[in-house]
Amino acid sequence: MDKTINQKAWFLVLPVFLVVAFSAVLPLMTVVNYSMQDTFGNNQFFWNGVGWFKELLDPSTDLGGRFLASLGRNLFFSAVILAIEVPLGIVVALSMPREGWSVAACLVILALPLLIPWNVVGTIWQIFGRPDIGLLGYVLNHLGFNYNYVSNDVDAWVTVIVMDVWHWTSLVALLCYAGLKSIPDAYYQAAQIDGASRWAVFKAIQLPKMNRVLLIAVLLRFMDSFMIYTEPFVVTGGGPGNSTTFVSIELVKIALGQFDLGKAAALSLVYNLIILIVCWVFYTVMTNAGSERPVKEGAA
């Protein structure tokens, strides 16, 4: 076949190149550039090579210690979030009505937390949890729990986690609900005919059919919780001490608080890389989970 040569086609591709260049490539390259240099202000830069990266990954330095500690907290936070929100989301989706006016009502109620701006969510919980004027804090303290997220590490963690569960479980539930709705009736009818119990229906039909949406839910929730900034910043400001200082909060402290552009740039790149790698691993593992298993003997 002859190839059509049409140089004018470049004009159609060019806008995309420009948009991608200005929106992604150029800013990212600026960060790469900063990550290799040091500055003392006054627009003077000095070459530092991979120095910042070495420091970042060495726990004995101040930068490395802070980064790795916040990274640990962040991974723990994401793990807890996923462990709560995914099963809870599935349970909510399963218990939602399948038809009638109540479907619309449920969807609206579920969507509400998702529509609230993140710093408003933070403010809501910041006030809600205060022991002096917040409904939650006041009631808890009057019931005999010594709850105070400003002074107690555990209380601060619980508050941030409960807040995130309140804010984002809906997303998982909505995705799962969509997955459940797409299962043809014939599957449920066949399961009835086959005498499957409720649990067997869940295990053999609903869970496998939700596989795809669950993958999306896990990816979204991992990325969002791993990048979380606004809500904990508004509620606890990263405290008490550094106990709820996640990577993004640490990053902002370094970049804007201390104006260490080189350190901040190096941290951003590593942060970005971690998210990419974890998402890739999740995706690969979860998409392969449904494929051929090694052959078992006598598994009739």
Partner: peptide
Amino acid sequence: AQVFQFPVIYDT
């Protein structure tokens, strides 16, 4: 026992 128009199999 009933067999339906479109195949129903348990994926896992």
